[in-house]
């Protein structure tokens, strides 16, 4: 009785809506996370100094650094609620296919990261005086592609470290080096969209982001079953 593709698609939707329901019910946690991301934005501007030009040039970098640093907390939490009271066992016995579990959870994490970016973006524009010079749709595409890039390896590594000692340390240690291309591409594309893109370079960065997304969404989807069985 292998699970059919339609069943797996349905399960992806169910896992996605379940994770979003949990985060909605525990939304004070999400609020705290958003506050943390905003605090990081303030810290960056203090660390760099009050020079308006520097701040404006690096607005994209601050936005993505605050998303990246907040993301490990969000990713770790999304696996913690599966593991803390054994809900993962109930899912496995339901039975949920490991691929559905991965894609459902990764989509839920990506969605929350996009929401976090949407919350952080207006303060970035206001604090660093970095108005958008290009179409907001293109910025939305960059934000979504960047968050997808964080979510796939992030969900896999969160599952991999969920039952280990010192997981709070291991998750960023393993995840961040892997995300270097994603960070570079997201920051460059965002900065170009804020400062203007006369050379039409944004599409190249967006292409790199999409290649990264495709690579890690497929590989992590394949390996996730091994991770949760281990």
């Amino acid at each position: 009785m292998a699970l059919s593709p339609t069943v797996i698609l349905r399960q992806i939707g169910q896992i996605l809506s379940k994770d979003l329901l949990i985060e909605w019910r525990a939304r004070s946690r999400g609020f705290a996370l958003a506050c943390f991301a905003l605090t990081l934005l303030l810290l960056f501007s203090f660390a760099v100094g009050a020079d308006a030009t520097t701040l404006r040039t690096h607005a994209g970098a601050y936005l993505w650094m605050s998303i990246f640093l907040s993301s490990t907390l969000l990713l770790a939490q999304s696996m913690a609620h599966e593991v803390e009271a054994g809900a993962l066992d109930t899912l496995v016995l339901a039975p949920i296919s490991p691929a559905a579990l991965f894609f459902g959870k990764a989509l839920a994490n990506a969605g929350q990261l996009v929401l976090l970016a949407a919350v952080a973006l207006p303060p970035v524009i206001a604090l660093f005086d970095a108005p958008l010079r290009e179409s907001p749709l293109r910025l939305a595409a960059v934000v979504v592609a960047g968050c997808l890039g964080v979510a796939a390896p992030g969900t896999l590594y969160a599952a991999l470290t969920a039952r280990l000692q010192s997981r709070q340390l291991l998750l960023p240690l393993l995840l961040f080096p892997l995300l270097v291309p994603c960070l570079l591409a997201s920051v460059k594309a965002t900065s170009l969209l804020m400062s203007g893109d006369p050379m039409h370079q944004v599409n190249a960065w967006l292409g790199l982001l999409l290649a990264f997304d495709l690579l890690y969404w497929s590989i992590c989807g394949l390996l996730f079953g091994r991770v949760i069985e281990s």
């Binding site: 896999l156 991999l160 892997l178 291309p181 570079l184 790199l208 590989i219 390996l223 091994r226």
Partner: peptide, 18 residues
């Protein structure tokens, strides 16, 4: 082994991005 596979697969894309 999973971490090693993910790390190695990332090498070319890290190189191109940098």
């Amino acid at each position: 082994a999973i971490a090693a596979v993910l790390a190695y697969v990332g090498v070319p894309i890290v190189y191109f991005s940098v």
